[in-house]
Amino acid sequence: MMERLSISRFWRIKDLHYTFAYSKCKKCGHAFYPPKHVCPKCGSRELELTIPPREGELLSWTKLYEVAPYFENEKPLYLGLVKLGEVKIMAQIVDVFDESLLKEGARVETVFRKVKEDGNSGLIYYAMKFRLTSK
């Protein structure tokens, strides 16, 4: 089964997927992800693409038992809202083997993983996800 995601759309924004790059407004300082062309706070177009730090803090999380067909191998799917430097980013949390460690304020780090394979013959899409930092 091949769905043909928009190859050009993914390619244009690959750096965002690969690094969680976000927009920072040069005028009002607002930082937001995913990046846009106009600052949603002050309307300025003077935005700077910035790469967030690797490590952040878990703000909240949820567990999904109902997932899109492709993610059936990864059920249950954990989604986390993470404060990464000055931005908040929502993405999958991987390698969760002890749910009790998923606490508000837990340290998490970015990790590079596959997000989707377009069937057996289409493209493979990679992006950043999160996992708990264990030291």
């Binding site: 990864e74 991987v94 990790v111 590079f112 993983r113 596959k114 493979i124 990679y126």
Partner: peptide, 13 residues
């Protein structure tokens, strides 16, 4: 390797 890992993701890390 987990379902979402392959030679590329491990090589990256």
């Amino acid at each position: 390797a987990a379902s979402d890992e392959d030679a590329v993701t491990m090589g990256y890390e």
